[in-house]
């Protein structure tokens, strides 16, 4: 999928590339961490007769960061699954563009709502400090995974807004209108 930052002015494109580099790093690290953890759990159990106690507590917290950063990158890459039936039926570029505008606008509206829910969730966690929710064995605050969920929706909102902007700016020729 084309790089959104190619279609944006420099002051926007540069921070966007930096942000994506960070997100990509989180995604790759999370994938490696998941695999290595389970590998170690099995090796520890059979070779060393030991237990990686409560590993799921930090593994899940990390996994939520990996998943939601990836979900946001998927919005940037326009990789989310959708029913492409109208894409097959509509062939005229103008109408394809109009449909893309409608989809993007609706998605942005829904993401606004989800981002607001994410904000509320994070604020609720912080408000409970110092009696905030945390995991039982390692006392990892629920804020850690929940902030990832909230940030994921906010970033999806951001990428979606940028797609909409490119779509409006470039008209029916925008790459977004062809997908």
């Amino acid at each position: 999928m084309s790089d959104l930052s190619d279609h944006l002015p420099r002051p926007l494109a540069v921070p966007l590339r930096g942000l994506r580099a960070v997100m990509h790093a989180i995604i790759v690290l999370n994938g490696c961490l998941m695999a290595l953890t389970f590998f170690c759990v099995v090796i520890l159990r059979y070779v060393f007769h030991a237990d990686l106690f409560a590993y799921e507590e930090w593994l899940m917290a990390a996994a939520f960061w990996g998943f939601f950063m990836a979900a946001a990158v998927a919005t940037h890459d326009r990789a989310h699954i959708n029913a492409d039936i109208l894409g097959l039926l509509i062939t005229r570029p103008l109408w394809r563009w109009r449909r893309a505008l409608l989809v993007e606008a609706l998605e942005l509206a829904i993401l606004s709502y989800l981002s607001w829910l994410g904000w509320e969730m994070v604020m609720e966690e912080i408000a409970d400090y110092p009696m905030w929710q945390s995991t039982i064995a390692l006392h990892i605050p629920f804020l850690v995974p929940r902030a990832a969920i909230a940030l994921g929706f906010v970033l999806m909102w951001l990428f979606s807004a940028l797609h909409l902007w490119v779509l409006l700016k470039e008209g029916p020729a925008a790459p977004e209108a062809q997908a």
Partner: peptide, 20 residues
């Protein structure tokens, strides 16, 4: 391999956001 983990990771994001 790193590129593959990143691309596979994005697919993971697609599926997990859906599950969520």
């Amino acid at each position: 391999f790193l590129t593959t983990m990143r691309e596979g990771g994005v697919t993971v994001g697609v599926v997990m956001a859906m599950i969520f």
